[in-house]
Write a protein that binds this DNA or RNA. Structure first.
Length: 421
RNA sequence: CGGGCCGUAGUGUAGUGGUAGCACGAGUCCUUCGGGAGGAUUUAGCCCGGGUUCGAAUCCCGGCGGCCCGACCA
């Protein structure tokens, strides 16, 4: 992509009223734009990141048998009244159409998915099945905060599983837990699995996937040595006390909840009459689980833990572009032409295997470098009069490793270890 | 929802009762070209409403909006 055409505009300074790291960096880098508190546009650059996160999630969801669908955001009041959540869910946006009919903007989709599932006759032979979607959710948060970490409109992946037996549900829950760990690893955030309350869903505990960082709004109690972690709301332990698992000291840390998986049991299926016919011919409510993951929040969290004083350092798999190719300018017209030719050629070549942002702008070296660091593609490639003298280019990983001068014909070999695809 | 701070060009700021200024950005021209280059020139702003005053960006009241703390958080 030509940078001059990519609708990227970076800013030298962050808006003064933003405190959170993700908001400052993403706003400055031209990834997002704020429309209202907790409501953001994903600009082309940000949308690329989102799509790459989406791809990772989709691959891992498909790998555990998930089948993707897309449910409506506009949901009739009657559906929500079936479970009593029209009245009890205080973050629900409620709207009226011109006829006076009332709708909720989807804050979550248990009602909708259960409504779909009960409309078909299901036998135990059809179970289990797993349905998921990635969609914009609306929640009327009393206080949106921290950039895209807690919006009133945000993008979420929600998976719902339907089972004939509790054992099966439990086994799947563990499988999803593993899939989640893979997703977060691929997205460049290390998570802790913390036990948390089942909320209004269940008396059973749920599991939260927590990214430890000062920018987080959750408080978790964690062991300094083993992987014991609980949300402070149910921990029953405090910092300084002994870890119940290994005896070491417990600490308290801030973290971002990037995923949460729940046991639903028959809470929704029994109330909404989503039954299946079991082996013995009797009708039983399906046993359900639900598994949430915030895509936009994950993007924010990734920025929140992968940055330095110059900007974002995107994890390889979710970077907007694999490579940032920068031709330098030269005062010598002939040389200028050679640089342009060589970099054009390299640009074409690299695009066969990588996504490349090509800085074709007529800007100073400093400006180009500063933008490259801020945007944070994993590798920067510079072609200049200097490098060209040796038929080479400079290859510099964004993660702090030093720059290397590499023969242009050998560049792909050099890239392999850094961004193998 | 309670509390705090804050609203001046796209962004960051100055102006505290008397001509709205600067920097970055954006446009044009010239020069420059390995870490946000220099000069010339242009562009663009006081959140809204009311009040006080000869006069309000500035003082007062009310809205609206943003950020932060807390509460809340399928």
């Amino acid at each position: 992509m030509l940078q001059s055409r990519a609708f990227i505009q970076t800013k030298k300074e962050a808006p003064k009223d933003e405190q959170s790291v993700n908001a400052k960096l993403l706003l400055r880098g031209g990834y997002i734009e704020k429309l209202a508190s907790g409501v953001y546009t994903f600009l082309p650059l940000g949308f690329l990141v989102l799509k790459r996160i989406e791809r990772v999630i989709r691959e891992e969801m498909d790998a555990v048998g998930g089948v993707e669908l897309l449910m409506p955001a506009l949901q009739p009041k009657e559906l929500w009244e079936e479970t009593g959540r029209w009245a009890s869910m205080d973050v629900l946006y409620k709207i009226k159409d011109a006829q006076g009919r009332e709708f909720a903007l989807g804050a979550t989709h248990e009602e909708v998915i259960t409504g779909i599932v009960r409309n078909r006759t299901v036998s135990y032979k059809d179970l289990p099945f797993y349905l998921y979607q990635m969609q914009t959710k609306f929640r009327d948060e009393l206080r949106a905060k921290s950039g895209i970490l807690r919006g009133r409109e945000f993008i979420m992946k929600d998976l719902y599983s339907f089972h004939a037996t509790e054992e099966d549900r439990k086994a799947y829950y563990e499988k999803v837990k593993e899939a989640y760990l893979k997703i977060f690893k691929r997205c460049g955030v290390s998570v802790l699995v913390a036990e948390a309350s089942g909320g209004s869903f269940s008396k059973e505990i749920s599991h939260e996937f927590q990214v430890r960082t000062p920018g987080g709004e959750d408080i978790i109690i964690v062991c300094s040595r083993c992987d014991w972690a609980k949300n402070s709301e149910i921990a029953g332990k405090r910092a300084g006390e002994q870890c119940p698992s290994c005896g070491n000291a417990l600490g308290e840390e801030r973290s971002i909840e990037v995923g949460n998986i729940f046991t639903l049991g028959t809470k929704f299926s029994s109330v909404m009459k989503a039954f299946f016919t079991d082996k013995d011919g009797t009708e039983k409510p399906m046993i359900m689980g639900c598994y949430g993951m915030g895509l936009s929040r994950l993007m924010g969290a990734a920025a929140e833990v992968n940055y330095d004083e110059r900007g974002i350092v995107w994890p390889r798999e979710i970077a907007p572009y694999d490579l940032h190719l920068i031709p330098m300018q030269s005062k010598d017209a002939a040389m200028q032409k050679r640089i342009a030719q060589a970099s054009e050629q390299l640009y074409q070549k690299l695009q066969e295997r990588y996504t490349v942002l090509y800085d074709d702008r007529d800007a100073s070296a400093g400006a180009k470098f500063a933008d490259a660091d801020l945007i944070g593609a994993p590798v920067r490639i510079v072609i200049s009069e200097k490098t060209l003298a040796a038929e080479s280019a400079e290859v510099k990983p964004r993660n702090g490793a030093t720059a290397k001068i590499v023969k242009i014909k050998d560049i792909e070999k050099e890239l392999c270890p850094v961004i193998q695809l």
